[in-house]
């Protein structure tokens, strides 16, 4: 067992974990942060994307011990009282259907805008290349990111 201390969505935690414990299982099964789901074994799908020290990572491909001393933000901690504009944009633009990819997609999209506040459509698509969605065909996800980028405070309609 190894000790890890992390701050998850603003809360400090210290736990003893097996070295092999995946960060996503630590979040889901030790901390009850089930908002972050698991979609694959090979780090392709991105459903488990969280922010580790402010940057997007796939929490199924990080060991909990590697996150020791880090600050983690999950979809559950993204809203700070009010929804993050990206969450609003996803709803307004119908950028989700079943919603399974949505937490990861939103976390990846927030990271994308952190690095590039005014992306082109191609840059948005490239920036989300690590996140798979099986429902939307990405059309409305692109629109949601454009919408969030254009109006960071209040997000407009679909068209």
């Amino acid at each position: 067992m190894v000790q890890v201390s992390v701050t998850v969505d603003g809360q400090r935690r210290t736990d003893e974990v097996e070295p092999r414990l995946l960060l996503v299982h630590y979040l889901r099964e030790r901390l009850g942060k089930v908002g972050t789901p698991v979609g694959c074994d090979t780090s392709n799908c991105g459903a488990c994307t969280v922010h580790l020290d402010g940057k997007s990572v796939k929490s199924c491909s990080v060991l909990a011990v590697q996150a020791d001393g880090s600050e983690i933000t999950t979809i559950e901690g993204l809203a700070d009282g009010e929804w993050h504009p990206m969450q609003t944009a996803f709803k307004e633009c119908h950028a989700l259907q079943c919603g399974y990819c949505t937490p990861g997609m939103i976390m990846a999209a927030v990271d994308l805008l952190n690095n590039n506040p005014d992306p082109s459509e191609d840059e948005i698509r490239a920036g989300l290349e690590g996140n798979l969605c099986r429902c939307t065909g990405y059309h409305n996800i692109v629109k949601a990111v454009q919408s969030a980028a254009s109006q960071p405070a209040s997000v407009g309609g679909v068209q």
Partner: peptide, 9 residues
């Protein structure tokens, strides 16, 4: 190489 999240790690 891979995607942005993988490139972060």
């Amino acid at each position: 190489v891979a995607d942005p999240a993988v490139r972060h790690r």
